[in-house]
Amino acid sequence: MDAVSELKRLGLSGYEAKVYVALVAAGEPLVGYEVAKRSGVPRSTVYETLSKLVARSVAYEVRADSDQVAYIPAPPKTLFSRIRDETEEAIENLRSTLDNVTPKATVHYSHTLPSRDDILGRCRDLIVSASTDLLLIAFPEELAPLEPPLRRAYSSGVDVFVAGFGADGEQSYGQAFSHATAPADELAEDTGCRLFVLVADRQELVVAGFTDDGAWGAFTDDPAIVMMASEFARIDISIQEFIKRHAVEHVPQWRLESEAIRNMIRGGSRKPVSILRRLNGGRETSVTDGEIAGRTPENRKRRTPSEPRQTPGKKTNR
């Protein structure tokens, strides 16, 4: 890691960062020309840079044995603590000021998230800015990179509820609920992807689908859509907790016993996923009706026009 680059991110100029690193590395007071030699900062500029650091208490003037003015750095721990305190104070002041000048939203936004990085980055934004609660439905592959910001949000007082797919695991933040309706791989097969839903403060939403070779999703703050997603997450979590507390058995078998339910689950979920992928510019995957229903076109029973349909999903003219 480049210390100079990181110090620049904290607000120091390039020359200031180089001078500070040189002072820390020296381990003893340095006079101006020594600082210039060790830091690579031009001698004509180094004294001005040192004066700026002294003014900000990033460095201090001391008297060397020869009665020359020399310089020592503020201890890194002291500097970082000060920067953290000043940054947090500035953020709080800005939050209060901007809240007072921000008008009530009259326009709501939705936009696509065409890649895994875009989706997870937007999710981190929502998690960091959350103030009341977070509802999350995710597979382990997507939950893992979001755990650090989720943990920080929980530590700051945000309620975190996670419905996870796959094996039960220990979670050091919020409340975790494991899906008991079917194995994770079967659920992913039903939807054609690893389903992902994140609702922040019941006001913002990211919904997405992940596969081994791609991802696609969308963000919105439209109240109607967010409300629907919130209710979906709340009901989903409630169902999993009910199953767990009441030791409901044979739930996976129930999903497979009825062909009508099997067709509804697989046929009704793969199509929206296909549409969402296409809207995000992804490669369209053709799924036939027979494949959706778990049957091939060759062994699918043919029906005459007069024969009543035996499976749900009947099309009607509206």
Rank of each mutant, 00 (worst) to 15 (best):
A3C: 04
A3M: 08
E6L: 14
K8S: 10
G11H: 07
L12M: 14
S13I: 10
E16K: 07
A17Q: 01
K18W: 00
V24L: 15
A36N: 02
A36G: 05
S39R: 01
S39P: 00
S39I: 02
V41C: 02
R43C: 01
V62A: 13
S66E: 10
Q68S: 14
I72G: 03
I83Y: 15
I83R: 15
E86G: 04
E92T: 11
V101Y: 15
P103G: 06
T106L: 03
H111R: 15
T112V: 04
L113P: 02
I119H: 08
I127G: 00
S131L: 05
L134E: 07
L134K: 06
L143H: 09
L150V: 11
R151G: 13
G164E: 12
D168R: 15
D168L: 09
A180T: 05
A182Y: 08
A182F: 07
P183R: 06
A184H: 08
A184V: 07
D185M: 10
E186R: 04
E189H: 10
R194G: 02
L195S: 14
V197I: 14
D201M: 04
A208L: 06
G214L: 04
G217V: 11
F219C: 01
T220Y: 10
A224D: 10
V226N: 03
F232M: 04
F232Q: 04
D236G: 08
D236W: 09
D236A: 03
S238G: 11
I243M: 11
K244R: 15
E257N: 07
A260Q: 10
I261K: 05
I261M: 13
N263E: 05
M264A: 11
I265N: 08
G267Q: 10
G268W: 04
S269N: 15
L276P: 03
R277H: 06
R278D: 11
E284K: 12
E291P: 00
G294M: 07
R309N: 03
T311E: 13
P312M: 03
K315S: 10
N317Q: 09
R318E: 11
R318K: 13
